[in-house]
Amino acid sequence: MEVIDLAWWKLALTALLILALAGVSLATRLGIGRSLLVAASRTVIQLALIGLVLEALFASSEFYWIALLALIMLLVAGREVMARQQRRLRGVWAFCIGTGAMFVSSFTVTVLTLVVVIGPEPWYAPQYAIPLLGMMLGNTMTGVALSLDRLNESVWSQRSIIENRLMLGEPWSQALEDIRRHAMRSGMMPSINAMAAAGIVSLPGMMTGQILAGSPPAVAVKYQILVMLTITVGTGFGTLMAVSWGSRRLFDDRERLRLDRLVHQKNQ
């Protein structure tokens, strides 16, 4: 089965619908017209650009180009994790902890999946490596950002409790155990919910795309299962590392709670 290519002018038809929606918004003073148009333009431009990049990448299949793209994806995700925390660690720590956790978990799980499970030739073949890493990073990013945000926010609001527990001679990890558990859970919940709802409430995007592109549903389903399981593993280990590194940094070598290491970002 051949995929039906879409002509650009046909895409322009859908863009007209967006314009119509913006027009309605303007007429009814809903005030979303501007951000709608900006976001729609960004989608078109960003995706067109990444399409060009992927075309070039698939054509060359050089390892260092793939590694460079993977690095850029990682850094952008690291910046995003930092921006999504209302209170974050001061200095380079917020960026390093989030990025480090995503790097170790996403890259390990992606490489493992490529080498052991899928086995393309070579193992870094871009049509497998890049989409897989992208999905892994995207989900791990959400988990890491949610859990660190929750961790820092809870430590801030429950500082008196933590300090009272320290006063009674509890080790820092014990004084923080409930907060760490909750932070871990909020990072993992989206993945767990997505797995529970898959196929019943929602048809996952990747599987849908593969079916549209002509894959037999049975193959698409197998890939979807693989992706969901590995995403959950990547998110889980990434969140685990981010929470344990992040909480360690909130205490110093004397096990004192150091809230001076947190900064509050406004207008988020």
Binding site: S160, N164, L166, M167, G169, E170, W172, E255
Partner: peptide
């Protein structure tokens, strides 16, 4: 730290 505070305990 926690072993020190087990001996030297503060009640806030």
């Amino acid at each position: 730290g926690h072993r020190w505070r087990r001996q030297v305990m503060m009640v806030p």
